[in-house]
Design a protein around this nucleic acid. Structure first.
Lengths: 255, 255
DNA sequence: GTTCATTTTCCGTATTTCGGAATTATCATT
DNA sequence: AATGATAATTCCGAAATACGGAAAATGAAC
């Protein structure tokens, strides 16, 4: 497990993630364990959060996220909520194409992408795609639609990570090929993935924020045998349109 | 202007509120001014936030709320979003009663309530109620629906505040009368306010969280001359039902 | 009431934080 | 390009704070 940072400021930022992430009610000991902080130090930090109202005390000796923390979150989300804004776009895609549409969000510090919203295909044959599931950045259409638009230094950091794929155990594409693939994604504006071996295929396009920083991607996934039935070029355009509309919404919110 | 706290942890918590509150893009100097922190100290704190991804840098020397901060906010809101949950309830009230319905949220550290959601009456004669507007806790149905359910120490703190009302400049109710009024609110489960002088009337009921801590209130406001046209008792029941349904949703989310 | 687990306080040490001043970077203007 | 104005960043010594192990206190369970 990763060691916590030093210094009160860094630790508080670090801690907030565990609180937002964790259960609605928690004990000091439990949080100490999850965050890997000594109990007495954690106690001091919680006092600061209590003073700020970001954490409150419940019955007995339990803590809980405070009303101020919710207020803070609401204020942030009020200006722009990626997930909520994406929802109608995903629904539209499913309506038009009858395949599962997903929204992935990218976390720059974790260097990971996760599925944050899904609209399932009506088809009975479908993969179960779970909200919250992690997306490997170097494999699949979803991952690469994000990876391609990361700054070079972050791409480097990512490919220094695991070298076997999550679903197949297949090795990562050799460096030059992967870079060629990413270049193609950038010029096309979308990524395609087609793997008859694992019977999965997909197309995805990046969602970018105000400063062109990547927020995530919108993608459509399907069993590979259905891939050929679609006019893939048209589907790609539809996905790109959805993704860039979402990018537009983000840009407006942040201007 | 209030002085910032001392100590890195307290300052970071303090700072987050300014960031969530403030514009989507900001400069160090501007934030320094708003938060009343020395530039060099603020710079150090921003470095910590940058390391955590809670703040990012945009073009030039501008800062902006980071993707991690949005992720954090989304995670918190995902479990329960007071505003979003309240929306259909407010719409229902307006549909049934044709009067403006509002949701107020209470911030325990600011000891203030604000309007966070409004559904307007279709009536042409209506007060303009603004999202974000502050609600005085000792006056009006909305404020008292909250005040009545605060812990005694917080009530004390509130009534030590301003002693003249925001709309009328009328003095606060004398202490014994106010306490009697609050007791009535608690037994009734809702507050009523009827002031022909300022031609405004309203009924409001508290929204409580898992530990019975007050989150805010739902209320309906109207011109006082329309108040008499309604079956006020039935309206009060409808509002109480809405508020307790919302309380229920909050409790479920936090259990 | 007693026990056990957990939280909270204590406290000496060592690390960070603090903020004014100096420096450097950035931007607008010529 | 060069200049000046403005703002961001780094520096640094003094002082305050954070740190965490250990002890004390709390409160839950029996």
């Amino acid at each position: 497990m990763a060691d916590p940072p030093r210094g009160a400021a860094d630790r508080l930022a670090y801690l907030l993630k565990f609180i937002a992430n964790g259960p609605a009610r928690f004990s000091l000991g439990e949080l100490a364990e999850r965050s890997n902080l000594p109990a007495s130090s954690l106690h001091r930090l919680l006092q600061a959060l209590l003073r700020a109202g970001l954490v409150e005390r419940g019955a007995g000796q339990e803590y809980r996220p405070g009303r101020e923390l919710h207020r803070l979150a609401s204020q942030l989300i009020a200006s722009f909520d990626l997930t909520r804004s994406a929802r109608p776009l995903l629904e539209r895609l499913v309506e038009d194409w009858h395949e599962t549409a997903v929204l992935c969000a990218y976390s720059p510090t974790l260097r990971k992408a996760h599925i944050v919203e899904v609209v399932m295909t009506p088809h009975p044959l479908r993969y179960s795609v779970d909200k919250g599931g992690e997306i490997a950045l170097a494999w699949g259409s979803l991952g690469r639609a994000i990876l391609a638009f990361l700054p070079p230094s972050e791409i480097e950091a990512v490919i220094r990570g695991p070298t076997v794929g999550p679903l197949t155990g297949s090795p990562r594409l050799p460096r030059p090929e992967l870079f060629a693939e990413l270049a193609k994604v950038r010029t096309n504006g979308h990524s395609r993935y087609y793997s008859p071996k694992i019977e999965i295929a997909g197309i995805a396009a990046p969602v970018l924020g105000h400063g062109a920083e990547i927020l995530g991607c919108i993608g459509v996934t399907m069993p590979s045998n259905r891939y050929q039935l679609h006019r893939a070029d048209n589907l790609a355009v539809a996905i790109q349109d959805s993704a860039s509309e979402l990018s537009g919404l983000a840009a407006i919110a942040y201007s």
